[in-house]
Every structure is written in C-alpha cells, then in structure tokens.
C-alpha cells in the first residue's frame, strides 16, 4: 500500500515540478525574447522596444478576437498552436536545467528530444495547411522542406554524441563536459559538430536567414497569415519556449559547466545536499549561458544576414553542414578507435 502512496506522491511532485518549469520556461523565454529584440535594435543603431515588450504583446494577443477563416479546417487550425506549445514545454522536463537533473530522468533521452524538437515545426506546417490560404500553404511547404533539411545535421550530431558517451541519456551526457572526454582530434570533431548545431539553431527557430516559412516581405507572415488572437499568442509563446529549449539542449550537450564545481559559495544546505549560495550562482550562470547562446546564435545571425531562398537554405544544410557534421563525427570515431 505504501508503495502506491509513494508512487502517487512521487508523480504528484513531478507533475507540480513540470508545471512550475513550464511557467518558468515561458517567463524566461519572454524575457529573453525582449532581450533579443532590444539587443538587435541596439546593434542596428536603434533604441528598440522596452524589455517588457513581449509580455505586452502576449497580453494584447490574448485579449484580441480569434478569427477562424471560412476556408480553414477548424479543429486542426485550433489544435496546431497547442501542439506547437506543448512539445517544447514537455521537452523542458527532460532537460537538465542548470544545477538540477531532468525532472523526468530515466524516461527519455536524446532521441525523444529530437522528436519533440520536430513536433512544433510539424504543428506549424499543419496549422498553415489547415488555414486554407495560398500564402500559408506556401509557408507550410517551406517549413517542411526546411525541417527535412536541418534534421540531417542534427541527427548526425546526436549520433556523434551518443557514440562518444555510449548512451542516449541526456543526464549522462551532461554529467561530464564533452570536451574533457576526448583529446586532440576528437576536440576538433566536436567543435565542428557544435558549429553545425549553431547553424541549425536559427533554422530551428525560424529566424532570419532561415525564416522562409514566415518571410514577411514575401508571404506576408506565411503560415501564420490567417492566425490571430489567442492562437497567434500561443504560437508566440511556443516560439519563445522553443528558443529556451534549444538553448538549454545546447548547454546540456556542450557546456554543462557549473561554477560551483570550481568555487564554493557557502550557505546552508537546501536541496539534495547543494548549498544555497552554489544553487543561486549556478542558476544565474545557467541563465547567463543561455543568454550568450541566444545572443550568438539568434540575435547576431538575425541581423547580419539576408534571408536565403528556400533552395539555397536546403542546400546549406544538406551539403556544407552535413559534410562538416560527418567529418566531425568521423574525427570523433577516429579518436574513439585510437583510445581502444
């Protein structure tokens, strides 16, 4: 009997934690979206919107009327934003967040995350197709083409990591920084893989130069063209959560460093034997790492390039990025075989 109670309590705590992490993920995402907008504006020589602008946008979108066009398939049209939002929120539960281990540790690893990463793109494409507008249709086609393109370098990176750690468990991969597990050739290999992942990030998040699916000047918003009000708000939230998700994934895979492993900041013991000072510093450091990754992979890239044509974007992922990723993987394997 007590086993059942324990199980129930355990899952109860877990679901509460997932809820908390979801809310925090949305909050941090919106905050960083504000940061992204402000910093890109400053790089372009503008003042830009205030930091709080994304929160105001969301508030406004949720207040507005949600219009469903006559030509749309209503249930799919309404379901798409929900799927797009839920997938990255679920993914956050499978990722180590700063000093904390994944909430759902042991229930899924890298492969699950790759699938969760694909769901928002598919949901967006479905929503676009369901809205029955020619612009949205073209946008959806582009989104699917782009997804097929960046999945290849992404999968290669996952294989290289899994080969190196001999596991798909994200907690195991992030328990030790990848850079300290290999030497010489392997380092070069992983650096190349990291490069491809940085290139995949703007595509994953539909930012310039890979925002063909939205392409404001070409398709007037592409697959979001018929969306409004609450549905558009959900997509907006989904986008920022996805940004946090992808950033956290990169941190977990390549930069799982904690300041507390070098310095101790004291304080009383609070959680799983961690000291309060260390906990606060580690969380802050994690958020800082996330900020840097978003700045480098999203903000700078977004302002420094023009939008690619869809065929060139596909080519970019399929040929140069895939080749770089494959060479990186080969180098990692070479290192592995030498070690044996």
């Amino acid at each position: 009997m007590s086993d059942v109670v324990n199980l129930a309590v355990n899952w109860g705590i877990k679901s509460l934690l997932v809820l908390l992490v979801s809310l925090l993920g949305i909050f941090v995402g919106l905050l960083y979206k504000g940061f992204d907008r402000k910093i890109t504006a400053m790089m372009q020589g503008r003042i830009g919107p205030p930091w709080t602008q994304p929160f105001k946008d969301i508030k406004k979108l949720f207040m507005k009327e949600t219009i469903i066009p006559d030509t749309a398939v209503p249930w799919l049209f309404n379901a798409a934003p929900v799927f797009a939002l839920v997938a990255p929120l679920v993914a956050l539960a499978y990722l180590p967040l700063g000093p904390f281990d994944p909430i759902m540790e042991g229930y899924g690893g890298l492969i699950l995350l790759l699938y969760l990463l694909a769901i928002p793109a598919v949901a967006m494409a479905l929503g676009g197709l369901a809205s029955g507008s020619p612009y949205a249709t073209v946008g959806s086609q582009r989104e699917l083409v782009l997804m097929m393109s960046y999945e290849l370098p992404l999968a290669i990176a996952a294989v290289a990591l899994a080969y190196n750690f001999e596991t798909f468990s994200i907690a195991a991969i992030s328990s030790e920084p990848v850079w300290s597990t290999v030497g010489g050739v392997g380092l070069l290999g992983f650096a190349m893989i990291l490069g491809t992942l940085f290139a995949v990030m703007p595509g994953e998040l539909s930012k310039v130069p890979f925002d063909q699916a939205e392409a404001e000047t070409e398709l007037a918003g592409g697959l979001f063209v018929e969306y409004s009000g609450r549905n558009l708000g959900l997509f907006y939230v989904a986008e920022v959560v996805k940004m946090v998700f992808v950033g956290t994934l990169l941190i977990a895979l390549f930069f799982p460093y904690h300041l507390s492993s070098w310095f101790s900041f004291g304080g009383p013991e609070v959680f799983n034997g961690m000291l309060l000072g260390n906990l606060i510093v580690d969380i802050a450091f994690f958020l800082f790492k996330l900020l840097i990754i978003i700045y480098v992979a999203v903000s700078v890239v977004r302002v420094a390039f023009a939008r690619f044509q869809i065929d060139r974007a596909s080519y970019f992922y399929w040929v140069p990025m895939t080749v770089i990723g494959l060479i990186g993987t080969l180098l990692v394997m070479l290192e592995g075989s030498m070690a044996i």
Partner: peptide, 16 residues
C-alpha cells in the same frame, strides 16, 4: 531593397 530580402539592418543603416 535590403528590407525586401530580409536584411533589416541595412534598411536602418541607409535610412539613418
């Protein structure tokens, strides 16, 4: 022209 190809940075630069 820069804006049309998604390069807003140069839109802001030239208009400045």
């Amino acid at each position: 022209a820069a804006h049309e190809i998604g390069f807003d940075t140069h839109l802001h630069f030239t208009w400045k």
